[in-house]
């Protein structure tokens, strides 16, 4: 309880809470689309691929302002996706292996750059390695401002293209027959997902950010069959996981932020898996006992 009172009085804690709430909301909402389109592991590749982007952005601009980091990370993440697409389209290597290649190689390059940067005699480089596991306590007001503005843009674009993205998730062929430019929409949605991942890197870290895309969305999926409710719930779950994890990590010594946030998100997921009405495991076993066959409506028509 004390902690929650501190939220209103303690400046640092408030900044951290707002920051992680933003990242939870954005990654939860956009994660819903990734999960529904069976691209859960793309987030894993993107977040790892972002590391060399962050390092290069720092090497080129010599600044650690959040905007520079976000642009660098997004470009690298996008490059990663392009390479995955090129590999899958031109060779017989399957998507899972292509994702693995990008994830590991980009991350390796990032680690090399990171060790090189750490050798530079420049006080400014300190803290770049915080991008590995994230450090919410290091969030500053300027970070929050940048994150906030970008998140508002991402969320409003999601609302603006609501029905287009819905079509893209559930019936892209129908969408194309209606005359929507599905390819462009695909690229737009992918870009939004990349940005959603990149925003959270500072707090959660490149290693575990993918979980923030998958876990809240998969949890939300258990409670509803409607896209709108799923996106809102996922955003809420993401925010709760983010704030709880960040607060525990900032107030307790020696607990890294990223892993703590991921643990919170996983707990929410487990809870949903067990207790969600209709789909949840407990509900289903109750239904089975009373000899009712549960009617599981798939959102996904496939």
């Amino acid at each position: 309880m004390q902690i929650f009172l501190h939220l209103f009085s303690d400046y640092t804690l408030r900044t951290v809470a707002i920051g992680t709430a933003i990242l939870g909301i954005v990654s939860g909402a956009l994660g819903s689309y990734a999960v529904l389109r069976k691209q859960s592991l793309v987030g894993d590749a993107i977040s790892h691929a972002a590391l060399p982007g962050i390092c290069l952005a720092f090497l080129i601009t010599d600044s650690k302002t959040p905007l520079v980091m976000i642009v660098g990370a997004s470009l690298a993440g996008w490059l990663g996706i392009l390479v995955v697409t090129a590999i899958v389209r031109n060779t017989r290597i399957k998507e899972d292996a292509a994702l693995g290649i990008i994830l590991a190689v980009f991350f390796g390059v990032g680690i090399v750059l990171l060790t090189l940067i750490q050798k530079i005699p420049n006080a400014n480089q300190a803290g770049l390695d915080k991008f590995l596991f994230g450090q919410a306590a290091a969030l500053l007001e300027r970070d929050i401002k940048t994150m906030g503005i970008i998140s508002i843009m991402v969320i409003s674009l999601t609302f603006l293209f609501w029905k287009e993205f819905k079509l893209l998730c559930f019936d892209p062929t129908f969408g194309a027959s209606l005359g929507f430019p599905m390819k462009i929409l695909d690229i737009l949605l992918m870009t939004l997902i990349v940005i959603a991942i990149v925003i959270g890197l500072q707090a959660v870290g490149v290693v575990l950010m993918s979980a923030m895309v998958v876990a809240p969305a998969s949890a939300a999926r258990q409670w509803t069959n409607r896209l709108a409710i799923m996106v809102c719930l996922a955003a809420l779950f993401g925010a709760i996981a983010g704030v709880t994890g960040a607060i525990i990590s900032s107030t307790t010594a020696k607990i890294p932020t990223g892993p703590m946030i991921v643990v919170c998100a996983s707990v929410i997921f487990l809870f949903s898996l067990a207790f969600a009405p209709n789909r949840g495991l407990i509900w289903q076993s109750l239904l089975k006992k009373t000899k009712f066959k549960p009617e599981i409506n798939e959102v996904d028509p496939k």
Partner: peptide, 28 residues
């Protein structure tokens, strides 16, 4: 197998969770 999550999502949830617990235990 619960059919509540797709396989890719299942992978994407399980290992970050286990890894996170491992990292927290190590650091702490």
């Amino acid at each position: 197998r619960t059919q509540l999550v797709k396989e890719d999502a299942a992978i994407g949830i399980v290992f970050p969770a286990l890894f996170s617990i491992g990292v927290i235990l190590v650091t702490r």
